[in-house]
Design a protein around this nucleic acid. Structure first.
Lengths: 225, 225
DNA sequence: ACCTGAACACCGTTCAAGT
DNA sequence: ACCTGAACACCGTTCAAGT
């Protein structure tokens, strides 16, 4: 606006590229992120992108980091338990909304994004009263459950797609389970109706509570209260 | 041997293709599975594979299933807790040895492989004395932790590669953590030395025990004994 | 029915050439 | 310094043609 020379297109920048990548990933999924599609969205050539980003892997990592960083904004204000739940649910919802983030996280684990999450979770573990020599392990386990469960949920969401009805899908899976071999899959058949009526978000929170309860048993005084 | 007509090459079959795919994936990683490389290993043309396998996704799912089915062979004979630990460790080791299995599992979740694992885990959950109306949730949570933690471990193994020294790598990550911003990463800095000396397998088992302890709190009588 | 392998429509990435 | 876009070396998948 102020300078007429950049009236038509903003100069290319890492930030603009990452934003466009996020938009593309949201629209078309992990397979939709292409240097050709991206350069078209940015009205430039495929080669131009390499001036701001080393390669596709780094671009996916940057897009993932942008989404995760957004969910971690703001200081937590509740009890450690409530903060863990809020943190976990924030990540769960972000990965549910942007399923490609799950793949981005496992692809770039020990990079920038994971320490960000680790720090947030770890502070709550510390405030939970976990003894210091168990901080690393407990934080790792909690983070593994959060990201693992969210990733598996995202995988299901990807199969579903945005146009398939969820109830219909769960019903179909449930029916498949009921028709499994009676001897080989006796347990799975028994819980087929529980799977039909379950809620992913609720189940995720129950999982968090279960892990927290497990932590509580090693920290007498921070139990299920 | 018996019939001279198949002296040179065994006829192509789904089983031979899947076996060759597993070998290729083990050698060259997820990116190494190529219809050209695969057809070369099988001394045939790329098009021939499509007579036995629908596409690459199905092939990866079949390869994943082959590996997982192998780890689930044999009936468990110990206490439910021991069986869960053995089951979890078997999957952890298999995914550690074949890191591409992690990707294959999230790609083909509600297909053949997941019910197989679910059933095995679920039977132990049942034998643990968990009330029936919680079977689905508890089994799902346990399975999510097992696969999630194993997948994240595999991601690290992939970064490491077979030629990088593990201690050196952990030392480097630990040093990076120690040099993080003191305010923003106070927790992470504190546990940097714990991360340097940790053992992945041991930490995984501690996670299993923690989840089991959490389950125990909801099943009085199946506690930490 | 099964296999062949060229061909199609894509990829990520590079690099001479331009501004 | 940044951008262009053709070119390279790949992909998964298809399909006429063979046996």
């Amino acid at each position: 606006m102020s300078s007429p020379s950049r009236r038509r297109t903003e100069a290319l920048s890492r930030e603009r590229i990452v934003d466009a990548a996020v938009a593309l990933l949201d629209e078309a999924g992990e397979g939709g992120l292409t240097f050709r599609a991206l350069s078209q969205a940015l009205a430039t050539g495929p080669g131009a992108i390499y001036h701001h980003v080393a390669n596709k892997e780094e671009l996916l990592a940057a897009a993932t980091d942008a989404v995760v960083a957004g969910t971690l904004a703001g200081e937590p204000e509740g009890s450690p338990r409530d903060n863990v739940r809020a943190l976990a649910l924030g990540l769960f919802d972000a990965i549910d909304e942007h399923p490609w983030v799950a793949g981005g996280l496992t692809a770039s684990s020990w990079q920038a994004t994971s320490p960000r999450i680790f720090e947030r979770v770890g502070r709550q573990v510390r405030d939970l009263g976990v003894p210091q020599d168990r901080w690393f392990t407990v934080t790792s386990v909690l983070m593994q459950y959060i990201l693992g469960a969210a990733a598996q949920n995202a995988a299901n969401a990807r199969i579903l797609g945005p146009d398939v009805d969820r109830d219909e899908f769960l019903g179909a899976v449930s029916t498949t389970w009921e028709e499994l071999d009676a001897d080989e899959y006796s347990f799975t058949r028994t819980v087929a109706d529980q799977m039909r009526s379950h809620d992913d978000r609720e189940q995720f929170l129950e999982g968090i509570d279960l892990v927290l309860a497990g932590i509580g048993t090693t920290v007498p005084g921070t139990g299920t209260t």
